[in-house]
Design a protein around this nucleic acid. Sequence first.
DNA 1: CATGAATGAGAATTCATTCAT
DNA 2: GATGAATGAATTCTCATTCAT
Lengths: 188, 188, 188, 188
Amino acid sequence: MRLKDEDKQQRIKKAMVDLILRDGIDGISISKIAKEAGVSAATIYVYYESKEEMLTEIFREYADLPYGYVMQQVNSDMDGRDLIETLVRGCYDFSIEHEEIFSFVEQCHRCPTLSEQVCDKDCSCDVLSLLHQYQKMGILKQYSDWSLVAIIFAPVRWLAANRKALSSNSEKYLDELVYMIQKVLLND
Amino acid sequence: MRLKDEDKQQRIKKAMVDLILRDGIDGISISKIAKEAGVSAATIYVYYESKEEMLTEIFREYADLPYGYVMQQVNSDMDGRDLIETLVRGCYDFSIEHEEIFSFVEQCHRCPTLSEQVCDKDCSCDVLSLLHQYQKMGILKQYSDWSLVAIIFAPVRWLAANRKALSSNSEKYLDELVYMIQKVLLND
Amino acid sequence: MRLKDEDKQQRIKKAMVDLILRDGIDGISISKIAKEAGVSAATIYVYYESKEEMLTEIFREYADLPYGYVMQQVNSDMDGRDLIETLVRGCYDFSIEHEEIFSFVEQCHRCPTLSEQVCDKDCSCDVLSLLHQYQKMGILKQYSDWSLVAIIFAPVRWLAANRKALSSNSEKYLDELVYMIQKVLLND
Amino acid sequence: MRLKDEDKQQRIKKAMVDLILRDGIDGISISKIAKEAGVSAATIYVYYESKEEMLTEIFREYADLPYGYVMQQVNSDMDGRDLIETLVRGCYDFSIEHEEIFSFVEQCHRCPTLSEQVCDKDCSCDVLSLLHQYQKMGILKQYSDWSLVAIIFAPVRWLAANRKALSSNSEKYLDELVYMIQKVLLND
DNA sequence: CATGAATGAGAATTCATTCAT
DNA sequence: GATGAATGAATTCTCATTCAT
């Protein structure tokens, strides 16, 4: 695999994700993506078998990036409060820093055909391992995995998705969310 | 002159929503919808100016149905615990009873072009009035509106959206969620 | 026939002719015309059997308006020079005063299907009678009808059609044309 | 990669021009043209961005063919009489030999949107250079360019356009026209 | 007479994809 | 590997026309 090509495929991915942020998942087409990526439409078929397969593959590849991002923020000697704050804020920060990937992943997850193939919870397995550790140490309460993922990430993602409709005091809401979730999940 | 066939427009709406559940928002087309609704494709343009406008208009019309549904479950003399349980479970029940509308609304809310025009929080204003009452009575804590909507509805919606990936013990997760949220929001 | 209706038909005609000036004969449609005329598309079918028939009928009705216009300018005791000047200038004036009708008639005359049904020369029969009188009086040379119509009207119409591309000194060209044609057609 | 098939584009052009002769400029459609040219409708969009652009481009390309044709008939040592006769008859001959191009160009010239973009006089610049030479030599009178083009070509084109309505003695009219124009333009 | 509703047919255009180079 | 050419199928949407009211 030559460097040049790697770059080309990267441009294709970026083009697709950028366009989906701009036009929505229902607004993309192979030729639009090709134009945005600066390659011929035919070139896309060198890397992907079909549009369908391209979407799925890139979704699969990107789906756990948000979780990967927050995991990088986490430090193993954090206490419970910090852990939760880091996870929640990390999720929000990712949605700002990588708006297009955030939106892409969110859109794909709601799309029935795609979400069947990539389950959100599976993407969060690293985070879950971490949470299990904190549960074992008696810091976090013993809620089940699904409940944990739901309560930690769903509200902040909703906030992030609606960010532009907020006046600007999103910081305040974020603080509240962090506080709430700490209260629910932490022992004492 | 013939009167506008109310039933026909209803069939168009239903067809669109049903198809979006099946094929995703990126998988619908005017002719598919027309066929499903049993009308001519041209007829759709009697009711809507364009595909875009049709999507937006129906989205706007349906966006608050989930909130309307839970409001019907609520009883004004409920205590705080029951209120929260009813809101959360109501949201989940709606996603089962009206799977296609739930999925439609969720998909639209993630789509950038559409979500710009219909803000999720606006749809929940009746719910918010209710929550304000409970706040005034000192039953609910004084969190801000955005945080309330986020914590009450986002997790359960995520659960509902991933329902099929759950073995079947979704009841357990739902119980946990209800319990968590009660703990966060209720005073003592 | 009620007054109101007469007015409605008139509006339809005007709308069609106006639109053909703006969009070209290939750019009109029943619904555009209806909207422009402020009537329902169905109403047009009260007055005309089909689009085809409408075009033909209105063309037939308007085709000799330019000739009618110049005939009104003509005075029976004009001398030869004045006659020619009046005919040529009249034609030009009509193209300015009734730009939309001028363009409409010109476009129809070039359109093979339409021009088959309405021959330009037939429209000029009144003018020809007049010219015959001046020929009998020995004022005009004995050219054949076709040649007369061609030499008197074709150049000025070309000038009129290209009017907007002329800097503005169309007056000068018009003077020259009048002079030329006088020279050709007048005896002595 | 396959090379652009020059022949294919040629067939598209021919198909369009032929169809416009048969059905009028308001009677063509991309699919009709494609069928006539023996290509897929989509192929037309490989060569032209839109129907509008196709029309304009082909019009621009063909607009001076009639003038090019008559220029080929002209011989530089002709006297004034022959020059005029050749120009006028050449124009007529072209309309017979290349009926479809003649009709196409005439229709486009009357169409407001198209004629804005391609001015008839610009197409005749070679002819004008020639006429200027004859003017300098004192053979032709000093009329302005517009008047020359108008008087030489407009009448014969009108005759050509109405050719089919003439009994058949078009030769006679043509003779008259030639004679008239010689009389106007030649010195002595 | 007038018209909103309805539609089959067809419009222009785009799509995803293939293929020869 | 990369791509311009090519296209059948599908897209959105408009058209001319009919009809019940």
